[in-house]
């Protein structure tokens, strides 16, 4: 009702987004808490289990997400400076890299499942308890994360449509900047997941 007669409060919109990102961090925080407890309880099992993860694929995905964050930042700068061509191009690259990440994750998971490593599998229940827990955390943490990547890609596609329709422009870019913040958050969470899961061998 009062959307039209009062000027938009961009600082308020940003504040709201930062608060939301805070809740996302706490959502993952619960999982990091579990990780910390179980890693101190089963440090040796975690060490062996992590050796089974594909470091090359993990590194590739890290590079992909970091690059996508760069393009996202370029795209936001493009919108703010009124350069729609740069903004659209970088945004498309961000989205493409996001999809690339999801595809990689798909191949990584299916390879694991083909080897009989999934929650409740016979192979996994034959291993020591700590390795079972490690893979449980691996699936839950990367699963929740890839869900966020997926949501991020959809969000960015919506942003792209709004950008094309000129709903988002240099004078009204808070929504776009917020979408960018969300994408960076997804990236940052991965930057913690990657070493904690892949690099502890």
């Amino acid at each position: 009702m009062n959307m039209t007669d009062t000027p938009k409060d961009n600082t308020g919109a940003k504040l709201g987004m930062w608060l939301f990102l805070f809740t996302e961090l706490l959502l993952f925080g619960g999982l990091f808490l579990l990780y910390a407890v179980y890693r101190s309880e089963y440090s040796e099992d975690f060490h062996f289990a992590a050796g089974g993860l594909d470091i090359a694929l993990g590194t590739l995905n890290t590079v992909i997400l970091l690059t996508s964050s760069l393009f996202m930042a370029v795209s936001v700068a493009g919108v703010q400076k009124g350069d729609r061509k740069i903004a659209l191009m970088s945004l498309s690259l961000t989205i493409a890299l996001g999809i690339f990440f999801i595809a990689n994750k798909y191949f990584e998971w299916s390879a694991k499942i083909r080897h009989g490593i999934y929650p409740g599998s016979e192979h996994l229940s034959g291993l020591p308890a700590g390795e079972n827990i490690f893979y449980g955390l691996y699936y839950v943490m990367t699963g929740l994360h890839v869900f966020h990547v997926f949501a991020g890609v959809i969000l960015l596609v919506v942003m792209m449509i709004m950008l094309k329709k000129n709903v988002i422009h240099a004078g009204d870019s808070a929504r776009f900047e917020n979408a960018g913040l969300y994408w960076h958050l997804v990236d940052i969470i991965w930057l913690f997941l990657f070493p904690l899961l892949y690099l502890i061998t």
């Binding site: 929650p119 700590g130 827990i133 699936y139």
Partner: peptide, 12 residues
């Protein structure tokens, strides 16, 4: 999925 994070039988 029976992940086992809270299940003592699976190390949780």
């Amino acid at each position: 999925f029976g992940i086992g994070l809270f299940d003592p039988a699976k190390g949780g």
